[in-house]
Design a protein around this nucleic acid. Structure first.
Lengths: 189, 189, 189, 189
DNA sequence: AATGAATGAGGTTTCATTCAT
DNA sequence: GATGAATGAAACCTCATTCAT
């Protein structure tokens, strides 16, 4: 990659950064291309050398986050913890990323009326399913609830913690809900 | 209410109906006042005899739904069921209304980037809290989880069922998740 | 037609007038909607209440001229002159209208890359053909030249007079060329 | 001309070729410099090493055609045919070139709203005039029609054949019109 | 109460041209 | 000589809202 290419990537990044900041502050519709380029300190026309439209930027930013999540999952995949522990860890990892980018996701979700498209590819869901199945096989988790109901509940739990309006800190919030969730999921002897 | 009043309400309703239909079909921003009034078969100017702005319509429509929820709650309030039963019933009532108006809520939520303003006044939350508290007092529900965590989890459950992409029918979907939720909430002896 | 309608037509006409004037002065591409509406003394937005685009205006203006030509033809139709005289008269009528609107036609022709679409419907060509045929039947015109060649030559003659860069006045110009044309067309005994 | 010069001319030609192709396909305004250079497979900036502007290209292309016409005229000049024959030959030569480049001329004419600048220098008109005058002196052509009227009629004849919408083939079309024209021009004894 | 023509701020987008590399 | 990223003026067009009728 030559100097020119590197320069171009830098410019792109700086446009994305400003755009996301503004999207979060005032919404996508309310942000104008002129404002973005003002913030990035480039001419308006430059925007169109990099993106087709404002909405393009969201896709670009999301793609980056998805990569981040994937990397975290790969690490967790190695772990030798038992299923409830794995779920706890998974929750904390995801929760963290979601929290950090909460507003970005909100912007994205509000933008696309399409069904909420959580920024995790099939790999994530697969991983979650395999952990739950493992727990069921070990007799630790109830088998009377369809797995997809469990995974959806899990995702809803994260959503709920993120959009919480409670005073309770995020971490604690997650833990309480995880407690409820795992308690409901666990097979009683 | 005299004839004039009734007439006015009819006009208002027909405007709202067309507007909501269009909002759902193509989004609020993308719907123009002209289109709404075209659909309602009135002149553009007439719109402003009834509403201050396009956004006003959403408030108006939501207000109606809230009233609906309140009426349902009042009925439930009379019931002499035990707490878990009450929660089940509450869930089904809410779930139904949410489902029926899912798109309306989505439109509303997308509109206001302001903290998601669930379309239930304090009364609903109060009612839910009082049921949970009653359950705790009777020793049926765990007391180790803060009540607001429980209510948030409950709302997340509904959200999760509504936005579900599973094949499982809505009603059943709700019941599975309620099972998980109640199981987690219930005090084990 | 009520007052509102009449007013609307007036506004439309005033927009068209200004637009055509500018189109002739500086070309269609070079004329901006803003300029037109500035000249017509209305807001920019008003333009779009009347026309979809600048190009729309040309169609509108041409439609008017076509009507004018048709009316003239109808009068000529009544005439009982012999064929060469009719052709002379026809030429003068058309030449006059073409000349008066020469620039409008030029603008139109430059605008549409489509084959030059002279502003006369089938009726005109039909009339011309019938005159020529009449002349042929009376033995006054040569029959060895296909009629469409003759009509095209006739139209070219008008074009040539209009776009002439000679000092000779338009009327005379037409007459000279008509002389050449009729001389060529006439059957020699 | 050294290798460098030849190389430069090649590049220039390839740019012109692509440009003209696009001009004809979609008009001058609608063709962008970027597209031209994309087609010519060079960088955008390169364009400005060869031409000052998009419009420059038209001039360049026209200049080539004019040279072509001139070369043809010079050949014809040597000929010892009589005036009507010379006019016939001239017509066929010109008609051919016009036909081949009909679209190029159309593009050019549409571009410059300035008085139509037929792509023939003074030399051509001079030649035509001299042939007609020769005919008049020999008593073959009428002297009652001003020469410029005759030349304009002649040019209009070519135009008319080129823009013809008749089914008659171009060559034949030209001949019919030439017949009419010469018949009109010829002095009757 | 109903109307719809007029408005213009405000956005998006294009693209010829420059110039540093 | 070749390049292409940066530029920003300039155009188009939309549409919520007003207000005279």
């Amino acid at each position: 990659m030559d100097r020119r290419q590197r320069k171009k990537l830098q410019v792109q990044k700086s446009i994305v950064d400003v755009a996301i900041k503004l999207f979060i502050e005032k919404g996508v519709e309310e942000t104008t291309v002129a404002e973005i380029m003002e913030g990035a300190d480039f001419g308006i026309g430059t925007f169109y050398n990099y993106f087709q439209s404002k909405e393009d930027i969201l896709k670009y930013a999301l793609a980056e986050k998805i990569s981040e999540v994937k990397r975290s999952l790969e690490e967790l995949n190695q772990s030798s913890a038992n299923p409830p522990q794995k779920i706890s860890q998974l929750l904390l990892i995801l929760g963290k990323i979601f929290e950090e980018n909460q507003q970005l996701f909100k912007v994205y979700r509000n933008q696309s009326l399409s069904p909420i498209q959580p920024p995790h590819g099939p790999e994530f869901k697969d991983f979650l399913v395999s952990v739950i199945r493992e727990g069921q096989e070990k007799g630790e988790f109830r088998v009377t609830i369809p797995i997809e109901m469990v995974t959806e509940m899990f995702m809803g739990l994260i959503q709920s913690a993120i959009t919480s309006r409670s005073q309770i800190p995020f971490q604690e919030n997650l833990e309480y809900k995880l407690d409820l969730f795992l308690e409901g999921l666990t097979e009683k002897k």
